Amino acid sequence: MRRKAYAKLTFFLHAQERKEGMLRFKNIIMPIDLFDMVYLEKSPEMVLETDKEYLPNDKRNTVYKSIMIMKKRYDIQDNFKVKIVKNIPAQSGLGGGSADAAAVINMLNDLYDLNLTSQELIDVAREIDEDTPFCLFNKPAIVEGIGDEIEILDYNMDLYYVMVKPGFGVSTKSFLKKYQHFHYDHNFDLCHEGLISQNFELMSDHMHNDFQRAISKKNSKLKKVARMLKDEGLQGVCMSGTGTTIFGLTENRDEAIRIYEKIVFDYPFVKYGRIKK
């Protein structure tokens, strides 16, 4: 059994408050055409393989965690061999680990004909992290709370991205524990309105990430990447999630290709592609 595990870009990230020790968000998240491949089959024992040496192949891996949760909740006695072919870089804010976990949750749901409701799937996914519930569905959405409140969005723009990940990442857990800069942000409504009304300028002018300023202070290279993408003519230039990927948008595929070809050899990871609908 195999499945594509799609990455995501965060068009708007707003940390609203900390409640019971957990950050609560109001985000706009979009699936993109970058994906890992996840292969799953029954096995006499639990085996987890990846094609990247830096990834853990034990209980620290989100895929291992998701399998253990599903086995316990739904009395699944089988063990599994899982192979993950990674295309989504780690610590990038693109949701790679979350996407892999979501793919396995969906595969086990199908393999055992569990017929879980959307809420039951979310209840499993939110035990992994705040992005895994979104990755279950891979559709544009407003995501609130601890990632478990999902409102699917209907939009009809053709949007292309160019993304750059410098050669360093951010430890999400350590960063989130320290974050305290809560405020009201009316720009969320404007970004949302632009997206659903197909007003590219309104949407891109109000894209935002609450974490970007704090992370950029510690990593000046992020500012340089953002400035470069803006100078090349991309709009809505923003950091995705809590990672270090900086991306920008255009409505013109040829423009995305031009920028990609110009900068592809300047950074460890550069990609262009299309926002999924």
Results as ranks from 00 to 15, higher is better:
residue 2 R to C: 03
residue 5 A to V: 05
residue 5 A to M: 12
residue 8 K to A: 07
residue 8 K to R: 14
residue 8 K to Q: 02
residue 9 L to K: 03
residue 10 T to E: 09
residue 11 F to L: 08
residue 11 F to V: 03
residue 14 H to A: 12
residue 17 E to W: 01
residue 17 E to S: 13
residue 18 R to G: 01
residue 21 G to P: 12
residue 24 R to Q: 00
residue 25 F to N: 01
residue 26 K to S: 05
residue 26 K to M: 00
residue 27 N to T: 07
residue 28 I to R: 01
residue 29 I to Q: 02
residue 30 M to K: 06
residue 32 I to R: 05
residue 34 L to G: 03
residue 36 D to C: 09
residue 38 V to K: 12
residue 42 K to V: 07
residue 43 S to D: 12
residue 44 P to Q: 14
residue 45 E to I: 14
residue 45 E to S: 08
residue 50 T to P: 05
residue 53 E to Q: 08
residue 53 E to H: 05
residue 55 L to N: 02
residue 56 P to H: 03
residue 57 N to P: 04
residue 61 N to F: 04
residue 61 N to L: 01
residue 67 I to N: 01
residue 72 K to G: 13
residue 74 Y to V: 11
residue 75 D to Y: 15
residue 75 D to P: 11
residue 75 D to L: 15
residue 77 Q to H: 15
residue 77 Q to A: 03
residue 77 Q to R: 14
residue 81 K to E: 14
residue 83 K to P: 14
residue 86 K to L: 02
residue 87 N to F: 08
residue 89 P to S: 08
residue 90 A to N: 03
residue 94 L to N: 03
residue 94 L to F: 02
residue 94 L to D: 01
residue 96 G to E: 04
residue 96 G to M: 02
residue 97 G to W: 13
residue 97 G to Q: 05
residue 97 G to L: 07
residue 97 G to E: 05
residue 98 S to M: 01
residue 98 S to T: 09
residue 101 A to R: 06
residue 103 A to Y: 15
residue 111 L to E: 12
residue 111 L to M: 10
residue 112 Y to L: 11
residue 112 Y to S: 04
residue 115 N to K: 15
residue 118 S to W: 11
residue 120 E to S: 03
residue 120 E to M: 00
residue 121 L to R: 14
residue 124 V to T: 14
residue 128 I to Y: 09
residue 131 D to R: 03
residue 132 T to A: 04
residue 132 T to P: 09
residue 135 C to S: 06
residue 136 L to Y: 05
residue 138 N to G: 01
residue 139 K to C: 06
residue 140 P to F: 11
residue 142 I to P: 02
residue 146 I to R: 09
residue 148 D to E: 13
residue 150 I to D: 05
residue 153 L to M: 10
residue 156 N to A: 04
residue 161 Y to A: 06
residue 161 Y to G: 09
residue 161 Y to Q: 08
residue 162 V to F: 08
residue 167 G to H: 07
residue 171 S to P: 11
residue 173 K to F: 07
residue 174 S to R: 13
residue 179 Y to I: 00
residue 179 Y to W: 14
residue 180 Q to H: 04
residue 180 Q to T: 06
residue 183 H to W: 06
residue 185 D to A: 12
residue 186 H to W: 12
residue 188 F to Y: 09
residue 189 D to A: 15
residue 190 L to C: 03
residue 191 C to F: 13
residue 194 G to I: 02
residue 194 G to D: 03
residue 196 I to A: 04
residue 197 S to V: 13
residue 198 Q to A: 07
residue 198 Q to Y: 07
residue 198 Q to D: 15
residue 203 M to P: 01
residue 205 D to T: 00
residue 205 D to V: 00
residue 205 D to G: 01
residue 209 N to A: 04
residue 211 F to K: 09
residue 213 R to G: 08
residue 218 K to T: 10
residue 222 L to C: 00
residue 223 K to I: 13
residue 225 V to N: 09
residue 225 V to A: 11
residue 227 R to H: 11
residue 229 L to D: 02
residue 231 D to S: 03
residue 233 G to A: 03
residue 236 G to A: 00
residue 238 C to L: 10
residue 241 G to T: 00
residue 241 G to D: 01
residue 245 T to L: 05
residue 245 T to S: 12
residue 246 I to H: 12
residue 248 G to N: 07
residue 248 G to C: 04
residue 251 E to M: 07
residue 257 I to Y: 08
residue 259 I to K: 14
residue 261 E to P: 15
residue 262 K to M: 15
residue 262 K to R: 14
residue 266 D to H: 15
residue 267 Y to P: 15
residue 267 Y to H: 15
residue 272 Y to F: 15
residue 272 Y to H: 10
residue 274 R to W: 10
residue 275 I to E: 00
residue 276 K to A: 02
